[in-house]
Design a protein around this nucleic acid. Structure first.
Length: 331
DNA sequence: AACTTGTCCAACCGCACTGAA
DNA sequence: CTTCAGTGCGGTTGGACAAGT
């Protein structure tokens, strides 16, 4: 590959002027070297790690390679509908804070989410002649895009149910899985998956956080948050209720590291986010896993398929867009 | 078949922040 | 207080590949 050979202007990375640093794509040998070294010595101290491991790479490059690609818990493959929905919601709250958004999509890297946003979302904004940060486009996402995502999730869930029923080894899910989004206007939007994997959407007051909810709060409406990045700090991770929280339970306003661990072990219930994001939990629901992947196949195209995505912007939607002030020349 | 255009995403850069010396 | 190495983050680039002409 004829990768560019840019001069390294970053002082922090010129840790060895005499050693020619490699750039560009990583080789299999380099990957193995890095993996083995981290397996034996752990990660961190990336510059010294790179030297000690004998890698002719900057520490920064090693860190990036590890975090974005080699880490065992990196989840690869298409962004699922649920993840798309979550990305849209979280981006509405935080904007381009990719690393923060990525914290709530286990296995996904900030780079991956960023790429998704740039290649999918911004593209559609461009098609609509909207600025991606404009109120018009945000309204479009909220009133058109996200509801349609929910519809598709619901439709796919129905497919799951049908398919599962048709087989003898249908899953015996009993856990109600839900995501509760706390909006900026002190309301909540709950996406509930019932026992039959039907999805219901409820709007309500911020205080109506119920059991089995997967909740997070935006800084503006978090009663206990202490900074602009704060989350609901009450512990939704009470296993007795199978709650899952993406908010933290500390004062650092960072999510709990165990937020996607299996909840409610006493009855084998698994959180919704486990179902959709945790590779380890995928195996518990093989049917769901299969169908979440199938959502991204051409038979259910939407965002991933530009040719059919255009169908989404039908006359009705375009009329609504115009009413919202988007889709025309009003940038 | 050849060329062009579009999409995806790994990898890079610059900057900001943090903590140790 | 200042300096600096280490780290993390967001923005950008460009190669590989697919789709279209």
């Amino acid at each position: 590959m004829d990768m560019k050979r840019r001069l390294n202007n970053n002082n922090n990375d010129n840790n060895d002027d005499d050693m020619e640093l490699r750039r560009g794509p990583w080789t299999v040998d380099e990957d193995l070297t890095l993996i083995n070294y981290i397996a034996n010595h752990g990660e961190g101290r990336w510059n010294s790690l790179a030297r000690s491991a004998g890698l002719k790479r900057t520490g920064k490059s090693c860190r990036l390679r590890w975090l974005n690609y080699l880490r065992p818990d990196v989840r690869r493959g298409n962004i699922t509908l649920e993840e798309q929905l979550l990305i849209l919601e979280l981006h509405a709250s935080w904007g381009n804070r990719w690393s923060k958004i990525a914290q709530y999509l286990p296995g996904r890297t900030d780079n991956e989410i960023k790429n998704y946003w740039r290649t999918r979302v911004q593209k559609h904004a461009k098609q609509l002649k909207c600025d991606v940060n404009s109120k018009q486009f945000k309204d479009t996402m909220r009133f058109l895009w996200m509801p349609r995502l929910v519809e598709r999730i619901q439709a796919a869930a129905a497919t799951v149910t049908t398919a599962a029923t048709a087989t003898s080894d249908s899953p015996t899910l009993s856990a109600t899985k839900s995501v509760t989004i706390i909006n900026n206007n002190n309301t909540t939007t709950a996406y509930n998956f019932d026992n039959l994997n039907n999805l219901e959407v409820h709007s309500g007051n911020i205080m109506n956080m119920s059991n089995n909810n997967f909740g997070y709060a935006t800084p503006e409406n978090s009663s206990t948050g202490t900074s602009s990045d704060s989350f609901v700090t009450q512990d939704y991770c009470n296993n007795n209720n199978n709650n899952v929280h993406v908010g933290n339970n500390n004062n650092n306003n960072e999510p709990s590291s165990d937020y996607y661990h299996q909840q409610g072990n006493n009855n084998n219930q698994v959180s919704f986010m486990d179902c959709i994001t945790s590779p380890s939990s995928m195996s518990l629901f093989p049917h769901q896993e299969m169908d979440f992947q199938a959502m991204e196949l051409p038979n259910t195209p939407w965002i991933n398929n530009p040719s059919t995505f255009s169908n989404f912007w039908n006359d009705e939607n375009m009329l609504l867009l115009q009413n919202l002030g988007c889709g025309g020349d009003n940038m």
